[in-house]
Design a protein around this nucleic acid. Structure first.
Lengths: 157, 157
DNA sequence: CGTGAAACTCGGGACTT
DNA sequence: AAGTCCCGAGTTTCACG
């Protein structure tokens, strides 16, 4: 990275909670004027700390209220298989998160679907992938919290 | 909701992948002119389908490369405890996701931290909450996929 | 880093079809 | 609903202190 000072951290904290503010408002909040504030935001974008700017949609309104966590086991513990699995997962829009795990199982997936039937449909497609030996599905009943805001260290940290 | 047509769906799909486009570019992509496009986006924001606009930051660059999934069990199966647990979770910035689960355990949390030590620190604070009987921590070794884009049905679906 | 200002783009309202 | 016209506001980039 390129050394983030306290103002940069402040800017990032604001932007990861709301990117729709004008440069003027932003500048005011961090105690700068427009131009230097704008320069900082540009730098943050170019450096890659700000990966992208997106709209977060409401899954319930869109008829996608169900999150399912699938624990996946494989017997193919080699780089090629891992690569092909990654590519497959990237192609599946229902999979919104996928992590390679330490411990009892190999991958953890979060799958977003409309209902249980839609999950079953997805599940059948998933187990069709070669090399998967076991899938355990855990259904979420309620989303208690979901944020894209990373816990970046603030003042007293 | 308020009936989303094909153009609204298109707009949402674009916006959830990139909200930094100008109304003009957006309009062009969906085959409209500025004003009607702008009106639609306004409506989508007011209706709540577009919950917010945020910047997604790079966890690695910010020194937060570790995701840990904690399976939490409780012996307090009542609404009051669930309420207090939700509030506690909301206050913990390290917890970026929390779901109430069906099945063997009660809650699944994703915790974002700098390293194993930081997780241990968080863990100690977590188990200090009353009513938690068991916490199983699963460490992620690698983030294969992570997106905020919901699988909204496109054309041939 | 701040100021001032230029050039330009964008947002958003009024009005028409 | 959508399109056209338009003006004010915001953004972006200067030169300079």
């Amino acid at each position: 990275m390129s050394s983030l000072d306290a103002i940069d951290i402040e800017l990032l904290a604001i932007l990861q909670s709301d990117v729709s503010l004008s440069i003027e408002e932003l500048a005011e909040r961090v105690g700068l004027t427009k131009t230097p504030c704008w320069r900082r935001v540009q730098k943050l974008e170019k450096s890659g700390v700000i990966r992208r700017k997106v709209a977060l949609l409401d899954a319930e309104i869109l008829g996608l209220p169900v999150s399912v966590f699938a624990q996946v086991r494989t017997n193919q513990h080699n780089a090629e298989w891992a690569e092909s699995f990654s590519r497959a997962v990237a192609e599946l829009p229902e999979v919104v998160e996928c992590y390679r795990m330490a411990g009892e199982y190999d991958y953890l997936l979060r799958i977003v679907v409309a209902d249980i039937q839609a999950y079953d449909n997805f599940y059948k497609r998933l187990i069709r992938l070669n090399g998967i030996t076991d899938v355990v599905s855990n259904f979420s009943m309620e989303q208690i919290k979901s944020t894209t805001e990373l816990p970046i260290p603030r003042d007293g940290d």
